[in-house]
Simulated assay, not measured.
Amino acid sequence: MKSKFLTAGLIAAMMVPAVAQAQTREIRNDRRDVREERGELRDAQRYGDRGDVREERREYRDAKRDLRDSKQDWRRDTRYQNYRAPFKYQQFRVGATLRSNYYTPAYRPTYDSRWGVPHPGRGLTYVRHYNDLLLVNVRTGRVVQVYRNQFRWR
């Protein structure tokens, strides 16, 4: 019985990054569609008649709506909501040293390119501290970079 729960938990943990990747892929594809539709609209405005322009405007508007909806779906993702640590907020600066309980795996979100921050290098990891995102050297616990209010839009 215990092994069934363990197996189910492992499967669920492995699926979370897959869901995030699918959402990232969807946003990337929607951005590409918006670019393509914008180009087709420009071509219709240059070379097409009024009916072509009207149709391309509609398609461009639909592509932008799809992108906006995909972004909203990503923002509603419950993995990034209602975050509270068992310790009070402290504003960290570059060079500060964290205690190991601040960067345990529970506070290390899976890297997501939509954050707009570079991929962490070897020996570094991102740590969420309330709305801040800290880039931390795992061996020493030193803060390498601080991104303030990275999760504020939640």
Rank of each mutant, 00 (worst) to 15 (best):
F92T: 01
F92V: 05
F92H: 08
F92E: 03
R93Q: 11
R93D: 09
R93L: 07
R93S: 11
V94F: 11
V94C: 09
V94W: 09
G95D: 15
A96L: 09
A96C: 15
T97L: 13
L98A: 04
L98C: 03
L98S: 00
R99T: 12
S100G: 13
S100R: 15
S100M: 15
N101H: 14
N101P: 09
N101E: 13
N101Q: 12
Y102L: 10
Y102W: 13
Y102D: 02
Y103D: 02
Y103G: 02
T104W: 00
T104R: 10
P105M: 15
P105R: 13
P105H: 12
P105I: 12
P105D: 14
P105W: 10
P105Q: 13
A106T: 07
A106I: 04
A106C: 00
A106Q: 08
A106S: 01
Y107D: 04
Y107L: 08
R108Q: 15
R108K: 13
R108G: 04
P109S: 11
T110K: 11
Y111K: 07
Y111D: 08
Y111V: 10
Y111P: 06
D112K: 06
D112T: 08
D112S: 13
S113Q: 14
S113F: 11
W115L: 15
W115Q: 12
W115F: 14
G116A: 11
G116W: 08
G116P: 05
V117T: 06
V117P: 03
V117L: 05
V117H: 02
P118N: 12
H119Q: 15
H119L: 15
P120A: 03
P120M: 04
P120I: 02
P120D: 04
R122I: 14
R122F: 14
G123I: 06
G123W: 04
G123P: 03
L124I: 07
L124G: 01
T125E: 12
T125D: 10
T125V: 15
T125Q: 11
T125C: 13
Y126Q: 02
Y126T: 02
Y126A: 02
V127I: 11
R128T: 05
R128K: 11
R128N: 08
R128M: 09
R128F: 07
R128I: 06
R128L: 06
H129R: 02
Y130K: 05
N131W: 09
N131V: 10
D132F: 02
D132T: 01
D132G: 07
L133G: 02
L133V: 05
L133C: 01
L133R: 04
L135F: 09
L135H: 06
L135G: 00
V136Y: 03
N137L: 00
N137F: 00
N137M: 00
N137P: 00
V138E: 09
R139I: 04
R139F: 05
R139Q: 13
R139H: 09
T140P: 04
T140E: 07
G141F: 03
G141Y: 05
G141H: 05
R142T: 15
R142A: 13
R142F: 09
R142L: 12
R142W: 08
R142K: 15
R142D: 10
R142Y: 10
V143P: 01
V144E: 14
V144F: 08
